[in-house]
Each structure stands twice: as structure tokens, then as C-alpha cells.
């Protein structure tokens, strides 16, 4: 009896992985989920996958904003968890993975928003953020040149950024500026730096100072401090365009456009790909409007009601051009 019992169990143990193969997913967030739409949607993508694949498990880890600690934390995360796959998102993470990959050769990593080819257990997918910046810049240029009540005659648009960082300096800001200049070459871009990602009061002061100097459209990329920019723009009846996620509800009528990254969809897709064992390991992809992972959120009522049809038409035309490949941006190498 006992022997039969044991045989049954051992058979079960051997067979189980073959039958169910539930995925153990670790999501490493180099920051904090709440307040960072990009990480929130990454987590949401993983959650959606887990919800649809019963038996799979998910561990989220927030590593905080100090980039110097990520290496140590990623290492402990990987060594403690024994995950089937670690999903993460940040341009600088591939460097870290490159450093620890030899230590954990069987550990698979998928990194969104990053670019690094040639590491056998890593697959990266980069958003074409020049494209994203360009779309936002083009929209900002159209708004600033329009006869909307908050727009002025000066050809000035602005950005309030938390800090300078490579993706910002090489992709986003140049893309934004190109977009502006595509509307009118006389546009100038005013970039102001906050010095951190949370001093909303100062962000508000910065935005006000910018507005008094003639800026009428601002793209804030300064983390939680962007609340200050929203406040300043709203108070003075000027306009904002936003990045990465649907932010219209924060200030309808002030936030006139959002150019989103479909991080949730991308994360979900990449996990499915992993489950189907079709992940192209060692490769690096670039995705953008064409692939459907960068999107101007132009279905939102706030967008439709606030912007005149002329602007909306020109934006649709732009998106169409990018989708069709008529207008393309060199895949950034990062």
C-alpha cells in the first residue's frame, strides 16, 4: 500500500511540471509602482497575464529610485526568487543584467524600454522615444500656433524635466524639438530642470516662470512633481501635453494630449511569448507607433472636445504617416 502510494506521488511529482508548467514571474521595478505610470502598467501587464493563466505566480519588487542600489537589489531579487522569468523595464537595466547574467546563466530576463543584444538569456524591447517625442512636439507646436484661448503668438514651447539623463537628452528632447520645428522652424524649446522628481512646489514655480517668458505649451517629465506643472498651467490657462500614459483626467482642458507607451500590452505580450517559448533570446527589438506600442491617445473625449478639428486632423495624418512608414525615425541605438 505504502509503496503504491509513494509510486503515485513520485509519478505526480515528475509529471506535474510537464502538465501545468505554471510560470513564476518576477517583476523588478527600478522605482516605485505608484506614481510611475510606466511601472504601474508594467505590473498591470504581468497581473493580467497571471489572472489569465491560473497557477502562475507573480512577485513584484520595488527597488526605489536610487539607481546605485539597483545592482545589489536586482542580484538579491534574482538569487532569492528562482523565477522562471524576470520582467523589468528601464534603459539602464540591461547593463546590470549583462553584469550578473554570467552568475545566473539559466535565469531569463525580459527588459522593456531598454536595448541590448547579444546576451543569451536577455531579450530587450525598446520604445522609439524619438517618435514619441516627435508626436508630442508636433502636437505642442500645433497647439501653440493655434488660436486656442491659451495660446499666444510667441513660438515657444517648454519642458520641465526632473533631471538630465541619456534617453532624455538623446531621444526625447531632440524628438520633441524636431516635432515643434516640423510645425514651424521658428519654434524654440525651453527646457528647465527641477533637480529632483518630487518638489512639486518648485516645479510649479518653474512652470510659472516659463509661462511668463511666453511659453504656452509644456511637456512635463518630472515624476510626481509634475503635479506642480499641472497646477501652474491650469491656473494660468495654458496647455500641457503628457507622456507615457493617459493623464487627461488630471486636468481636462489643460492636458490636451497624451502620447502613451503601451507598456501593459507590451509586457503582457512578451509574457505570452515567453509562455509559448517563442522569445527571441539575445535579440533587441525597437517598437513604436507602427507596432502599436506608442499611441497618441486621440479617442479620449477631452482630446476631442478641447482641440479643434484642424489640429486633430493634422495629428491623425501624422500618425498615419508614421504607421505607414512614410515618416520614420532611425531606430535609436542605446
Amino acid at each position: 500500500m505504502l509503496r503504491r502510494f509513494m509510486a503515485f506521488f513520485s509519478a505526480l511529482f515528475i509529471a506535474l511540471p510537464l502538465i501545468a508548467a505554471p510560470l513564476k514571474i518576477g517583476v523588478f521595478i527600478p522605482g516605485q509602482r505608484e506614481g510611475s505610470p510606466i511601472y504601474d502598467s508594467l505590473a498591470a501587464g504581468a497581473e493580467q497575464f497571471v489572472a489569465e493563466n491560473p497557477g502562475s505566480s507573480l512577485r513584484l519588487f520595488e527597488a526605489g529610485f536610487n539607481q546605485a542600489e539597483w545592482q545589489e537589489k536586482l542580484t538579491s531579487f534574482v538569487s532569492s526568487g528562482r523565477f522562471d522569468v524576470v520582467l523589468t523595464s528601464n534603459p539602464s537595466i540591461p547593463d546590470l543584467i549583462e553584469a550578473i547574467a554570467p552568475l545566473f546563466p539559466t535565469q531569463k530576463f525580459i527588459c522593456l524600454d531598454g536595448f541590448k543584444a547579444g546576451i543569451p538569456n536577455l531579450h530587450t524591447v525598446l520604445y522609439n522615444q524619438t517618435e514619441q517625442g516627435y508626436i508630442a512636439g508636433y502636437l505642442a507646436g500645433l497647439i501653440s500656433s493655434s488660436d486656442l484661448p491659451g495660446a499666444n503668438a510667441q513660438k515657444k514651447a517648454g519642458m520641465v524635466i526632473g533631471q538630465h539623463y541619456p534617453v532624455m537628452d538623446t531621444l526625447i528632447a531632440p524628438g520633441f524639438e524636431q516635432g515643434l520645428k516640423a510645425v514651424d522652424p521658428s519654434f524654440s524649446l525651453d527646457i528647465r530642470v527641477l533637480g529632483n522628481w518630487y518638489d512639486a512646489t518648485k516645479a510649479s514655480e518653474l512652470a510659472k516662470s516659463m509661462i511668463t517668458s511666453g511659453v504656452d505649451v509644456i511637456l512635463p517629465i518630472c515624476g510626481s512633481a509634475s503635479q506642480g506643472v499641472v497646477k501652474a498651467a491650469k491656473d494660468s490657462n495654458h496647455y500641457l501635453v503628457f507622456f507615457d500614459s493617459d493623464e487627461y483626467s488630471r486636468a481636462p482642458g489643460t492636458i490636451l494630449g497624451c502620447v502613451a507607451l503601451k507598456q501593459k500590452e507590451l509586457g503582457y505580450a512578451k509574457l505570452n511569448e515567453f509562455a509559448l517559448k517563442t522569445t527571441p533570446w539575445g535579440s533587441a527589438q525597437v517598437v513604436g507607433v507602427k507596432e502599436g506600442y506608442i499611441e497618441l491617445l486621440d479617442k479620449h473625449p477631452s482630446y476631442i472636445q478641447s482641440l479643434p478639428a484642424s489640429i486633430r486632423d493634422r495629428m491623425s495624418e501624422l500618425i498615419a504617416r508614421i504607421s505607414s512608414g512614410t515618416l520614420s525615425f532611425p531606430a535609436p541605438k542605446l
Binding site: N196, Y198, D199, A200, T201, K202, Q227, G228, K231
Partner: peptide
């Protein structure tokens, strides 16, 4: 006087 005029509470806003 930081949070009320802003209409928001932002972590670490004392900065």
C-alpha cells in the same frame, strides 16, 4: 502652505 495651494500632496514635497 506647500500642499494646499498646490491642491495635492506629493511625497517628499518639503524637499
Amino acid at each position: 502652505s506647500l500642499s494646499l495651494p498646490l491642491g495635492a500632496y506629493v511625497p517628499a514635497m518639503s524637499s
